[in-house]
Amino acid sequence: MSITRVTAIACGLGAASVLALAPAGAQAEWPERPVTIIVPAGAGGGTDATGRLLALGLEEQFGQPFNVVNQGQGGGVVGFTSITTAEPDGYTLGVIYNFAHYRPMGQGDFDVDDMTPIAQYNFDPAGFNVPSDSQWETISQALDDIKADPGAYNIACGGGCGGSWPIALATLLREWDVDLSEVQMISGQGAAAALQEMVAGGFDVVPSSVPEAGPLIESGLVDGLAVFGTERLEAFPDIPTLQEETGLDLELGAWRGLVGPAGLPDDIAAQLSAAMEEIYNSEAFQTAMTSRGFGLRWRDAEDFETFMLSEQDSVRQLISTLGF
């Protein structure tokens, strides 16, 4: 298969030069050849950036190249399918993010049982963004108005309406007893595009990560009314938390973690978990994540699985109420 070889060279161009700097680690039985990390997102986005950071760390730990392969087609469906159907031999891993919506929306055929969780390393709370000339000063006002007349406001989903940010917002609306079947949620091509559309007058609310809306908030075109986390973000100390504003103790947003296909041998999973913990706690990883505005969150394999299962239940129920 000369195609595979040449492509590996092309894909490894960047990785190889980094590898030259990495000290050769102890050679265990696994991995004896390069490992592929599938990122179900396009090159250049947040998932890709954190995936490449992890690959860098894993390379140092195991002394083998960890090649990032981007498969962002179909909103990630193609990448997730590749991860969950790969041979569980430890040579194909995947960086994943909120995926519970694909199956109930009829887009993909995989769930938590098709994966071997290794570790969660990131969580970013959702932010509630409105245009600066909006009639709403606080999120409680906004929620009350939406509850009073759910169909009157245009709410952006950012990407598809099953994505992390709209699901976070929909979960909040459900907690506020808003009639979800009436709410007007409109999908599009990503949070950045939706934010631009909102400034141009198209939307009343856009949920997104706070750093993504940061430049527009700084320039006074957008107001961030709340962050859906347990504490305020260091970089945005003026944006209150959901609990401060509404009293609801919710933590909603996007997360990322490392998994293998279901049936990954225990010893490999254990080695990977240990390596992930070391990488997560390294200063280089922490600085690199924070400097790009990614939140840090650690869950080991067991907690990660429990967390994904409970999210899976919640999202399925939500999507059937929303009627997507």
Binding site: G42, A43, G44, G45, A192, E212, P215, L216, S219, L221
Partner: peptide, 11 residues
């Protein structure tokens, strides 16, 4: 100016 990418390259 606003952190809004026009295409994948600028992203």
């Amino acid at each position: 100016v606003f952190g809004i990418p026009g295409d994948s390259l600028t992203a």
